[in-house]
């Protein structure tokens, strides 16, 4: 336990000095403020409070931003130690590889959580200050907060796994960007074009829901939109998926962090310094 905490403290310090903490906090704060100010302009007619509107746009933003931040913080975790030569030293210490990973995870997840809390807190503040009905959106915001942290944990795990697989920080960075583009950007485009080509056939009814749930970023968006009953209003992939029950997307959101971390542990176990 002490070893995990010490690792976490050291990693947090490094992230603080490498400005990852500042970058994460500023990005989340700025985007949340912009979205909540923009979201509060033309409300009224829809019968939806301002905070709920902001949560819907924050959800779309988080799908991109949280995985990116998580991957940027994690890609160096093992490859960097390996390149500096500290990995062989660390592995000679009486600490298990899982403990090393957990220590890093605790630090990186704490930074992400801070960023999410700051951003969401600002968004809530703006919404509540401008609309007295905004309190109605708080449960949706809370749901978005904890699912964002879980989404972060998933991509941290994926980043550690890539870091262990590539051994070189430059290689790990490339893989991390590739993963981000693939899962967050290209995946949805591919699904959409497949749906268009399929024209309501087998793919749309059977394969598409599974494909959405299999991607942690899509499952995250789906879960938040379904839970707040906003799928009908959402465009694109989210709008095409209102048939998927909530418990399925929730399961995906809950299972992915563990799966990704198990993957990272398996990849790390194979590393010989």
């Amino acid at each position: 336990m002490n070893r995990i905490l010490s690792t976490a403290g050291t990693e947090f310090r490094i992230a603080l000095r490498n400005r990852w903490v500042a970058i994460a906090l500023v990005l989340m704060a700025v985007f949340s403020l912009v979205l909540s100010l923009a979201g509060s302009a033309p409300t009224g007619g829809l019968g939806v409070d301002r905070l709920s509107v902001t949560v819907a746009s924050l959800t779309s933003l988080s799908v991109y931003l949280i995985p990116l931040l998580a991957l940027l913080m994690s890609f160096d975790a093992i490859a960097g130690e390996s390149e500096r030569g500290t990995l062989s030293l660390l592995l000679a210490y009486p600490i298990a590889r899982e403990e090393i990973l957990l220590g890093k995870l605790v630090a990186h997840l704490a930074i992400l959580t801070l960023a999410v809390l700051l951003g969401h807190g600002l968004a809530a503040g703006v919404a509540i200050a401008t609309d007295e009905n905004a309190l109605a959106g708080l449960p949706a915001l809370f749901r978005l907060s904890w699912s964002s942290v879980l989404l972060g944990a998933t991509f941290l795990g994926a980043g550690y796994a890539l870091s262990a697989l590539s051994r070189r920080p430059s290689g790990a960075a490339g893989l991390a960007i590739g993963l981000w583009l693939g899962l967050v950007v290209l995946y949805d485009l591919a699904l959409l074009s497949a749906i268009v080509a399929d024209n309501g056939g087998w793919f749309t009814t059977d394969a598409f829901p599974v494909a959405l749930l299999a991607n942690p970023a899509d499952a995250f968006r789906l879960f938040n939109l379904t839970a707040s009953g906003a799928t009908a209003a959402a465009a694109g992939v989210g709008g095409a998926a209102d048939a998927i029950p909530l418990w399925q997307s929730l399961s995906s959101v809950l299972i992915w962090p563990f799966a990704a971390l198990a993957l990272a542990a398996a990849a790390f176990r194979k590393v010989t310094p």
């Binding site: 310090r13 490094i14 000095r17 490498n18 500096r84 030569g85 062989s88 030293l89």
Partner: peptide, 16 residues
Amino acid sequence: RAVAYLPENVAFHPAL
């Protein structure tokens, strides 16, 4: 627990 090690060419994290 019994062994201490100093690897060759070790470079500790510059930020610490």
